[in-house]
Design a protein around this nucleic acid. Structure first.
Lengths: 347, 347
DNA sequence: CTGAAAGCGCTTACAG
DNA sequence: CTGAAAGCGCTTACAG
């Protein structure tokens, strides 16, 4: 590979040292904000840094520190809206700390998965890693990262690791509200379309729904529970299946908005009006919930805030001094009532 | 910062050299696939690499090469679905080449924008950068990257740089098909909701629409053209505005699906049935186009493939030997007809 | 075909 | 308060 002089980044620490008439050791002290520098020396050095627009080379720094300023995020998730939301939150939290985000899509089924993951973290000397569902649920991944000394944060529906390593959304509490709401509207025969079995959120949302219904003495009949895949298509299929039951439900809880959109289609194809003939509700409250017709009652999850909190925890783990006070806030899940639900038909 | 021995990545090049009884120079030759290594020496070295699970440290390599194996992607785009689609394509193209993707959200309005961008590329010694709309349209960004010697690829609606630096979607051709289709259905009064002025795609889609209509002798009346923001809300607003016209259009072309979803809502609120009273069409053919009711006629854009092609061009720029033959294919935009359009009402 | 040595741009004990 | 020197883990002219 030819050395192209144009590629050379502006000024090195040596240039600054020369310009300021100090040693590189002193430049490091100043640029890293370390103590023990004379006022006049500091002034001269700072001036040189400014004039030469010096910025420490991230690679060299990483090599010396045995740690890069890179945070990895891995995902294997069917829902792009969820991923982008987490990612935005991460970026918001990471960029002020001068940490960069490197993303990677994984296939856990891949035989090389664990080797690849280790290589990813080690080759890049990652300062930390964010695990999103469903990868975050896998204890083996956490164990691997622990073993190679890579700090991580698991984003999940429920706390499942030490506090500094988990960020949880409170799915169960959110679903509980939804259960209360449905029961409160008078629904007694309620259908549910779950997410994939390997998603913790699916189980939590089901449990929460049952909690909320139980407060009103309502039970979810097992025959009205079908498994979905968190996708639009699986929502259509699940909706059709439930509506074909002899005693069809008067309300359908889809474990996410995508599937609820599918249920809406299934209802339409079955000639049912929503909410007059059938109540449909979703979960997550992504943009799609507002775009559909009728607009979907859903539960707003603080996905982005979870990303921001994960970034904060990782900053701490990476030894960054937080710019703000404490950890950023995470709102509790919140029921958002829209036009897709009403009382059961009188029939 | 304390040196934690657990953080040390497994084997260094020195470990391998010692184990194989060769110099580090030879290990480099073997691990990089360079020539001039004796068969026996190569065998021994390869064995050592395998046994020690040696993988060259990415940071040290980058420092020596004055180039990391990191590709940057910057975006400032209101549409997460678009971004995630590009990103997926990039990852698919980059990962086999052992290039990593580091993403960054920018605010071009920020006074530090250009400095931050330069710092991003220089500090990380980026092997390349992907520019997405609307940042890709800005010639100053391209000039900056050129100046600091960072290879880049601009993703846009139309070729606007040297071929190896552009990837274009052919928006105009796609919109042309849509224009033909609408005119073919018999529509004569056609409304259009454009994207933001700083998006090249907006202008291209408008031009294409006009092309297609013109083939049927139809002209877009200027009074029926309103500016949107590529968002759902702006689609509602645009739809309302158009439907409030004295001579309202019989068909509305929204320059993306998000806005078309908004038009659907506006139509509903105005008591209009789609497609019986009003035809609504979108652009991009993202998942939302299928989820809506009625499902949206749209134009499928090869967004993901553009990402893959951008990754390929950047791999070439980074000096990687392509694993496959030539550049990956990019399909032409394709009209996807669904239930949201029909002939104009007879009235 | 193979290797000793210098260099990439930083940081950190260790002295003074 | 300040600096000379070694080290982080790689690669590449340059010799032989």
């Amino acid at each position: 590979m030819v050395h192209d002089p144009a590629l050379r980044s502006r000024a090195t620490i040596g240039d600054v040292a020369r310009a300021a008439g100090v040693s590189t050791r002193t430049v490091t002290r100043v640029s890293l904000g370390q103590p023990h520098v004379g006022a006049e020396t500091r002034r001269r050095t700072e001036a040189a840094i400014r004039n030469l627009q010096y910025r420490a080379d991230s690679l060299a720094q990483g090599l010396a520190w045995r740690r890069s300023d890179l945070i990895g995020m891995i995902y294997e998730n069917p829902n792009p809206n969820y991923i982008i939301d987490v990612q935005q939150g991460l970026l918001e939290g990471l960029q002020p700390q001068r940490l960069e985000l490197v993303v990677r899509r994984c296939e856990q089924a891949d035989s090389e998965f664990f080797n690849e993951l280790a290589a990813f973290a080690e080759r890049l000397k990652l300062a930390g890693m964010v695990l999103t569902p469903p990868l975050s649920h896998d204890a083996r991944i956490a164990a691997l990262l622990e073993a190679i000394g890579c700090p991580y944060v698991r984003i999940a529906a429920r706390r499942l690791d030490r506090p500094e390593r988990t960020v949880a959304g409170g799915d169960r509490a959110g679903a509980r509200e939804m259960g209360r709401h449905l029961a409160g509207l008078g629904h007694r025969r309620i259908g549910a379309i779950l997410g994939p079995a390997n998603f913790m959120s699916s189980g939590e949302r089901l449990a929460g729904l049952q909690d909320g219904l139980a407060e009103h003495g309502v039970r979810l009949s097992p025959g009205l529970c079908v498994r979905g895949a968190y996708t639009f298509e699986s929502g259509i299929a699940g909706g059709r299946a439930l509506l074909a039951r002899e005693a069809a439900p008067s309300a359908i809880f889809a474990a996410n908005d995508e599937m609820a959109a599918g249920v809406l289609q299934a209802a339409r194809q079955a000639g049912l009006a929503v909410p007059d003939d059938l109540t449909v509700v979703g979960f997550d409250d992504l943009e799609i919930a507002r775009s559909l017709w009728p607009p979907l009652t859903s539960v707003r999850m603080p996905t982005r805030q979870l990303g921001r909190l994960a970034a904060w925890k990782l900053s701490v783990a990476a030894g960054r001094k937080p710019l703000v006070g404490g950890p950023p806030p995470v709102d509790a899940p919140r029921l958002v009532v829209r036009r897709s639900c009403g009382p059961p038909p009188v029939s």
